[in-house]
């Protein structure tokens, strides 16, 4: 009798525990359900999945490959940092240095070229700015390599530009192709829209009233630029700089097509490691290093500059 009571009591206790557990599980399920029911969550799910499979997955795979022994393809083996040690001890720093240097020069040149152009497009040209936009966008429909080969034909000895320069100006620029300046020319040419359009956006965010107020308070053209236009357009300028810097850093075609074998940029090294050398782990390690260096630089710049503060929302 007493045993039966005890068993029953135990049973009911277990039952209670089970209930609690089930209740907990169901509450977790309802929470998930609630989360999925909130606006946008389901709509965001397909792109999230795509990003996870198509972007994050391969990145992790590259990171994993960078940690296996050189010239192997087996992810199951022992992990090592040999590849990174090799990179540091070998002369890869030269490729890294060229890439960073050329990307920096490209960004600086693009800033100088694009600011007046962006200013004109937002403030001076009026409706003609649309035509200019179209003219700048149309070349993007042509493959980058074809456009670069166009430059090869223009710059090659006896080509359009050296020929014209010699005929009309008496200048000999036939040696320009396959040099570093030719690579810079290609980088600036290809990435111009990526600096120009964010800059146009940034400059169009500067209200005319603020310009007028600054001028009314005595500001000269230069003071207006320094005190009002530049800081207020800074978000757009920064985005343009980051975009073009990252793109130029990872560029490959410009140095190969316009630079010939003048220099080797890091993307070139990565490509060789994956293709000719069949050394995937080293290519992966170089890629990881480039991502880390570029990412670190971007984060350093972004954390130094508070966009909210620039926009006066801080």
């Amino acid at each position: 009798m007493s045993l039966e009571t005890d068993v029953r009591a135990l049973e009911s206790e277990l039952e209670d525990a089970d209930h609690t557990r089930r209740r907990q599980r169901s509450s977790l399920w309802t929470e998930l359900g609630d989360w999925l029911r909130q606006p946008g969550a389901l709509l965001a799910a397909p792109p999230m999945l795509l990003l996870a499979l198509g972007f994050l997955g391969p990145l992790l795979l590259v990171a994993a490959f960078s940690l296996i022994p050189p010239k192997t393809f087996d992810l199951g083996g022992a992990w090592t940092i040999r590849n990174y040690v090799d990179i540091v001890t070998e002369s890869y720093w030269i490729s890294f240095a060229w890439s960073f240097a050329l990307a920096t020069v490209t960004v600086i040149l693009l800033m100088l070229i694009c600011y007046p152009l962006a200013y004109a497009m937002t403030k001076v040209f009026g409706r003609a700015a649309n035509i200019l936009t179209l003219l700048l966008v149309i070349p993007l429909f042509v493959s980058e390599n074809i456009r670069l080969f166009g430059w090869v034909l223009s710059l090659v000895k006896g080509g359009v530009l050296p020929g014209a320069a010699e005929l009309w100006l008496g200048l000999d620029i036939s040696g320009l192709l396959y040099t570093v300046p030719a690579i810079v020319l290609g980088l600036v040419y290809v990435y111009l829209p990526f600096m120009l359009f964010p800059m146009v956006l940034g400059l169009s965010m500067v209200p005319d009233r603020l310009r007028e107020a600054a001028v009314d308070l005595g500001a000269s053209r230069w003071q207006l630029f320094r005190e009002i236009e530049l800081p207020l357009a800074m978000p757009g300028i920064l985005i343009g700089c980051l975009l073009t810097f990252i793109l130029a850093l990872g560029s490959l075609a410009e140095s190969k097509i316009l630079g010939g074998s003048a220099i080797v940029m890091i993307a070139d090294d990565i490509e060789s490691a994956f293709t000719f050398a069949q050394n995937w782990p080293k290519g992966a390690a170089l890629s990881v290093l480039l991502i880390v260096l570029a990412g670190g630089l971007v984060f350093a710049v972004l954390s130094r500059l508070d966009l909210d503060k620039i926009l006066g929302r801080g």
Binding site: R209, V215, D216, L217, G218, E227, L232, K309, G312
Partner: peptide, 28 residues
């Protein structure tokens, strides 16, 4: 306008959003 000894308070006030109160007042 920037060579005239006069100035204006704008309808929209035209305060500089990236500057503090002090920096706005000190601007001229």
């Amino acid at each position: 306008a920037n060579k005239r000894p006069t100035c204006m308070v704008f309808q929209s006030l035209a305060l500089f959003p990236h500057k503090t109160v002090g920096q706005n007042i000190e601007f001229p």
